[in-house]
Design a protein around this nucleic acid. Structure first.
Lengths: 333, 333
DNA sequence: TTGAAAGCGTTACCAT
DNA sequence: ATGGTAACGCTTTCAA
């Protein structure tokens, strides 16, 4: 049977409260008493029962991290940093996968407060503001990425200006037929909309007329779907001078298609991505991308979350994380 | 204030026990009563307090998943499948990162039983049997991968025969100078040892004399370290006919180095990996690899874990998962 | 089929 | 500085 505070107290010849005081270290405890208690804990191999502690305190020390799909490199990197930062701060992290399902995303926001978690970091894809009922008591939530809603705190990279800057960079050596891969039909993800707008903003700046036939739709942002979409596109259209993929993952799928078709990169077509995932650096050729510090995203998300836990009533906080255009072999003239 | 069973009971005009019965659905409840209770729960937006439930039941419904580094594609894919399968079975998953630290690995095995978790799935790297004290009450644990120990249940892919078979496949078109990337000096990971032995077993079968200079050491199995190790190696040695990397991640790093050096793959040098991660399929050229079903690993690990929770005394169970050699562009003659 | 009461392990309040 | 007592929300005897 597992040892409890009572067992420890009995062995140390003190009361349970004193054991608790030793553990939590807020109330002062005399040195000899503390020593006796610590020894008793070690002897009994005492491990506190977190369920009991959570019940009593109303806080569990657990936060939930909800991502579309843990297997995608971008999500995996974000998850890694959040778990690492959270652990440094003493949090336990629980993983949820949404599968990009809006229903699941909302469910997590509204029903997550099962008191096993103190807060939620959610990377939504298609979270719709209208669906989140105002007035329902939300748990402390921080949203990751581009979302058009005003209800929760948020950490994001400005997709619009980043896409604009990347398009400008691709155009610099005089390229004018710049295609984008990853646009969505109808109501797509906020990120898709923002990145498309940024691309169009750049065209306007450059005085390049918009050309619908350079928008390559791709609903799911995976290498598979990107490869398929690009392959089908190239069957019907001439090769553009540059291809801006809305994620690095898509760019990796695109590179494999271009290579199979015997196109030289960047001579025949320049390629760029977005996210700066580790594999992009080792792509062939290495991938030009929009880079940003994922650890900053993690630490800012955790900062906002803990602040929110402390003050549920405070107004919405939004943090924008810096990005930079990193030009590598896939676009270098 | 959050609604509790008492509130629901009062509103439905029943006792807390009846509310509990409705939720857990074991004890039969009359249809009208059940309806009233369910309505009351909906009206009060009732969410059960899992800390209280966990305290009372002695089980939390949470399992921990401990991996070296969530950001590596292999770990990410495994985590994805485990989370998915676990959720299907009603488990909540908590993430731990070990950073390949043996101390952390052991700590998790022995001290993880804080009653917030019912079991642990651990992917160790250098777990040493001798360090895990026999007799200490372990929580239910399932180990993932190659480990030389007899204490816990385990799911693994036979690295030795897989590495042997891959080496044989690489040698088939008459290649004889086959190098491996990822060997470790001194006491390395069990996987490194097994894969090296498999490689050597193949050489013996083929009648190719072992050549120390074809073992390229690489302690950390990342694209970065692999690229660096291979680059340094090629500065000093002639180009081998084939390169068997001990993971796909390392192979991706290797491909980028070979490409930078202007070597043609597979004409000048064939390349293979291990793990069949998604990005390998979209590498240039697509990567030959040892493939296995990660969902099977996940479901078997969960099966063993739940069985172990039910019967702590049972002897060690070990499950070997099938693999296959998948030949893609990086080695096709 | 349903109700009353006890208790899981912890910490906070109020004494001493 | 330390001890006694009550309470967190749930489920499980035991009774009715």
């Amino acid at each position: 049977m597992r040892a409890t505070v009572k067992d420890v107290a009995r062995r140390a010849g003190v009361s349970p409260k004193t054991v608790s005081n030793v553990m939590n270290g807020v109330v002062p405890v005399s040195a000899p008493t503390r020593l006796r208690v610590e020894q008793a804990m070690a002897e009994l191999d005492y491990v506190p029962n977190l369920s009991a502690r959570g019940l009593r305190n109303g806080r569990s020390g657990v936060i939930a991290l909800a991502l579309p799909d843990l297997a995608t490199p971008y999500s995996a990197e974000v998850a890694h940093h959040i778990v690492e930062v959270a652990h440094e701060q003493g949090w336990i992290v629980q993983i949820e996968e949404t599968g990009s399902d809006p229903v699941r995303e909302q469910e997590l926001m509204t029903r997550a407060r099962s008191n096993l978690i103190d807060g939620l970091i959610l990377n939504p894809v298609v979270l719709d503001e209208s669906a989140v009922k105002v007035g329902v008591a939300l748990p402390p939530v921080v949203l990751l990425g581009e979302v058009t809603q005003q209800l929760a705190d948020r950490v994001f990279v400005n997709s619009l200006t980043a896409a604009r800057d990347m398009t400008l960079a691709l155009a610099k050596p005089g390229r004018r037929r710049i295609a984008v891969l990853g646009t969505t039909q109808g109501r797509g993800s906020a990120a898709a909309i923002q990145r498309t707008q940024g691309y169009e903003a750049a065209l306007d700046i450059l005085g390049i007329p918009r050309d619908e036939s350079l928008l390559i739709p791709c609903e799911k942002w995976t290498p598979e779907t990107a490869a398929k979409a690009l392959d089908a596109y190239l069957d019907q259209h001439p090769v553009p001078e540059a291809l801006f993929c809305f994620t690095d993952s898509m760019a990796i799928g695109a590179l494999s298609v271009l290579w199979k078709r015997g196109l030289r990169i960047p001579e025949d077509i320049a390629v760029a991505g977005f996210d700066d995932i580790a594999d992009g650096r080792y792509a062939v050729p290495s991938l030009t991308t929009v880079s940003f510090d994922k650890r900053t995203i993690a630490s800012e998300a955790l900062r906002l979350l803990t602040e929110r836990m402390g003050d549920r009533a405070h107004g919405q906080r939004v943090v924008s994380v810096d990005y930079s255009i990193v030009e590598r072999g896939s676009s270098k003239a």
